[in-house]
């Protein structure tokens, strides 16, 4: 990620130390992960010790300290999705992509993550890919959906 882009985000928040989380969130959504150099640069600009930035970046699940694939797959494992067969959906996705939750495949095509509830239980089992919700999925539909992502 270019340094100018990060500086732009920081300037938008008036280089205020209290907007550290907001800055990190914006970089996360632009870049999909937070490299070491970026964390160091943000710490310098916001005058926050690197220990604090690391504490926050490793605390929240919204931040990733490892590179993510082009398509981020979130599979809901909440109670409603669980009883409607989320486990089978997860197995299908694992078979299709060859990765387990928390991992990214070698071509950086997919990152897989399980979540505990996406808040739309009536649509269970739910899979969210790049922010788009796919509801009432069946095993066969799951592979079809995954095939449509490059």
């Amino acid at each position: 990620m270019e340094i100018e882009k990060i500086d732009q985000i920081i300037d938008k928040h008036q280089s205020d130390a209290s907007s550290l989380i907001q800055v990190l969130l914006e970089i996360q959504s632009e870049n999909h992960w937070l490299p070491k150099e970026v964390l160091e640069h943000v710490s310098d600009r916001l005058q926050v010790p690197i220990t604090r930035t690391m504490h926050i970046a490793s605390f929240y699940k919204a931040f990733s300290l490892v590179p993510k694939g082009r398509n981020e797959v979130h599979i809901c494992m909440g109670t409603a999705c669980h009883v409607r067969g989320a486990k089978r959906i997860l197995e299908t996705v694992e078979d299709f992509t060859g990765i387990k939750p928390g991992e990214t495949d070698v071509d950086m095509k997919f990152s897989l993550e399980t979540v505990n509830c996406l808040g739309c239980c009536a649509l269970g089992p739910v899979v969210e890919i790049n922010g788009k919700t796919h509801g009432k999925l069946t095993v066969s539909e799951t592979s079809e959906v995954l095939k449509s992502y490059e």
Binding site: P49, I50, T51, R52, M54, H55, S58, F59
Partner: peptide, 21 residues
């Protein structure tokens, strides 16, 4: 000096030195 801090959370929380500091 902030040579060390906490990382991760809950049961995985641990202290961590920042090597270059």
């Amino acid at each position: 000096l902030n040579a060390l801090g906490f990382i991760n959370r809950g049961v995985n929380k641990e202290i961590c030195f920042i090597p270059h500091i």
